[in-house]
Write a protein that binds this DNA or RNA. Structure first.
Lengths: 107, 107
DNA sequence: AAAATACTTAAGTATATGCCTAACTATCAG
DNA sequence: CTGATAGTTAGGCATATACTTAAGTATTTT
């Protein structure tokens, strides 16, 4: 059960193309910070900041071994964000359905 | 097919609890600006700004009749945002699966 | 031990975001 | 017409975001 703040952070994290690109990279498998940075048209410290946002959102985690920090996706938050959208879409469909019945039944 | 900018805007829009609350209200059915504002602890102009963000993201549309602006959810963008997450989650599962096969844990 | 690698931290800047109040416009109701 | 209602616009302010370059700190590698 994600709270408001977690949801805020997860969606806010995904609201940036650089971070979505990082997630896209990480769903293929783990990567180091430099590997992530290679794909992005910005400095490594900037990529680090994006990584921090992703970690604070719970979408990604990382750990450091030696001098290399390895990052990977955390699927749970991905699922939770997905579920929120799915539930709302379903609610909307239900509303449409009720409207249809109302218009049909009540002439 | 959502482009990067649309995705940026949709997820960024959902990255704010006020706007998510507005979406939650609107999936139940259409509402006026004042109705949306009643639920929020802020001024009506502030709610208008959030509405503008939601409209620019494609998640919500509105039209004005007389002096009342009526807002409603646009399910398509909701679905597209949902699909992006779903596809990434599936990619991650595929990666895990490959890893499992590699390790010989699963067949 | 010296140099290269892989981050990490710091300091600064520019723009965007999230709010506010006040003043304005356009309808609708009596 | 007059006032209430619904929304809009404008101006301002405080904080957050998205970068930058420069200067660190650990770890390998040679």
């Amino acid at each position: 059960m994600p709270n408001y703040q977690e949801m805020d952070r997860a969606y806010q994290a995904l609201g940036d193309r650089t971070r979505r690109a990082m997630v896209e990279r990480l769903v293929q498998g783990p990567a180091s910070v430099s590997e992530l940075a290679k794909d992005q048209p910005m400095s490594l410290p900037a990529v680090m900041l994006h990584l921090k946002v992703l970690e604070e959102s719970g979408l990604v985690k990382s750990r450091k071994q030696g001098r290399v920090r390895t990052c990977e996706v955390v699927p749970q938050m991905l699922s939770e964000a997905e579920r929120w959208l799915s539930e709302r879409r379903q609610m909307w469909e239900l509303s449409l359905d009720r409207l249809g019945k109302y218009l049909g039944v009540e002439k």
